[in-house]
Design a binder for these strands. Structure first.
Lengths: 268, 268
DNA sequence: AGAGACTCTCCAGCTGCTGGAGTGTACAAA
DNA sequence: TTTGTACACTCCAGCAGCTGGAGAGTCTCT
């Protein structure tokens, strides 16, 4: 019979851990005396060694408890294996992001951008597909669409907070004759008028980049986001969205305008 | 100005998280009103996006706080990168252990063994190197050495718990004329007598396997441990130790004998 | 009898939130 | 003006697997 201190040396586990395992019912000592001193035997040593081997394989206390009480070990191991694979993938992703940031330190303007992955929930929008001659046309086209839709749907409401964006339908960058779909999130389906359609946009996973400043600089943000996607092993799964957060309607200075790029992606 | 619920939708973070970030000083709202309602602006949205990008890269709240307050970001990132690499290596090791167990399900006798990695602390031992004709010679040799040492060192004490082991000096398995070193851990250096020497054994990292039963079955345990080392990407860095925990001196039945194999290793 | 080594229980703390209880506030409909 | 509903607030507990510390009791040797 060993007292806890000796048993701790024998098994190379701390006394604290042994008491904890006793507390959670994973490994009870052979006996406990009147003064509540714990006494262990080599039977417990063998059992503890088994526990350690499973702990070192990454299993939780609960999982080990289940295995010890006779539950299907193989199933538990396989589940843990899948979890580990997920964990490794996640850490590898984090590592790749850090490398990207570190490597970006040299390229000055990249410093101003950061990318995050977000789940964008589904939403109902009214939308209009069109080909616009150039980016300046937005300033006239977009208010017109809003007005047309509002005229046909007097009590339709935009979501709060708003979600107002353009989807770039061309697979490439263009300066002229750009195919776009303008969308604005609303609370329900309404009456369609002209080329304005209502539809439910499905939820997507997207990489998001914030761009502060004039639209003419958006090219840098696009360059950044596509490089980010490439180097972090994602693949583009849809057309990019440009969501307008701050703009001419609420900020005087062009430098205050805030736009969010959302590029649908999935992990490669 | 957005209230917390709207800001939460805009940023895709939960309200709980936003309040938590406020509490820990990572992201305070632009203003708080008399009813303690929090109000956010798009400035906070940009800052939060930066925070999210770093969280998704695996940085802790504290690290992000340090970066935000102007500490050396590069150093923090590099430290986190090293940590991630360590984490990934650890998880990969765990995965390999689980695979080993799962794959071992088929080979029946492997089921009885488990391996753990342990740090074995340094210790003072008296030891004697010798060549023994066969394993049965242990039963006469070992008590004789103990007696000889005790005679020369009347008040020398063995450690509690005991640590009594044989090191196999041959690089290979042998049935006869085995080169071994017998060691027993004691509390201090003593008088050397005959071939008995005192020495300090350095601390080692070893893979440990428990073997219950007669010594004649130890071959299986060795087969197991070397296969384990191979398949889990460790390399052997020293001679194996056989530590006698239960044996003829305290257990009647041979089936109760307990021996621990310790093979010094390091990760490949 | 005292000293020192050991053991005990109980509580707090770590990380980054999440869930819930109980309560207060804002805004629109009746 | 009341009432309802959605939203906001502040605590507090819980997760996992220990670790550290306080304060008290026990064992063993001198």
């Amino acid at each position: 019979m060993f007292r806890i201190g000796e048993f701790s040396k024998l098994s190379k586990m701390t006394v604290k851990t042994l008491r904890y395992y006793d507390e959670v019912g994973l490994l009870a000592p052979e006996k406990v005396d009147l003064a509540r001193y714990r006494y262990y035997t080599t039977d417990q040593l063998v059992k503890l060694h088994y526990i350690q081997s499973l702990r070192q394989a990454g299993l939780s206390i609960e999982e080990i408890g289940n295995i010890l009480s006779g539950k299907d070990a193989e199933e538990i191991l396989i589940r843990r294996k899948l979890q580990l694979e997920t964990d490794i993938a996640e850490k590898t992703d984090q590592l790749s992001r850090i490398d990207f940031i570190l490597q970006g330190k040299e390229e000055d303007y990249f410093m101003n951008y950061q990318a995050t992955i977000k789940e964008i929930p589904e939403c109902i929008v009214y939308s209009k597909k069109m080909t616009i001659p150039n980016y300046d046309a937005y300033f006239t086209e977009i208010p017109a669409i809003g007005a047309e839709c509002a005229a046909a749907n007097p009590d339709l409401k935009c979501t709060v907070p708003g979600y107002c964006f353009v989807i770039y339908l061309d697979g490439e960058y263009r300066e002229k004759d750009i195919n776009v779909e303008y969308c604005e999130a609303v609370d329900r389906f309404g009456n369609e008028v002209g080329d304005i359609k209502f539809k439910k946009m499905p939820a997507i996973t997207a990489v998001s980049v914030m761009h502060k400043g004039p639209y003419s600089d958006l090219g840098k943000a696009y360059a950044f986001v596509f490089k980010w996607i490439e180097e972090n092993n994602y693949i583009v799964t849809g057309s990019p969205r440009e969501s307008y957060i701050d703009g001419i309607w609420n900020k005087e200075s062009i430098d205050e305008w805030l736009t969010e790029l959302q590029v649908p992606v999935q992990k490669k």
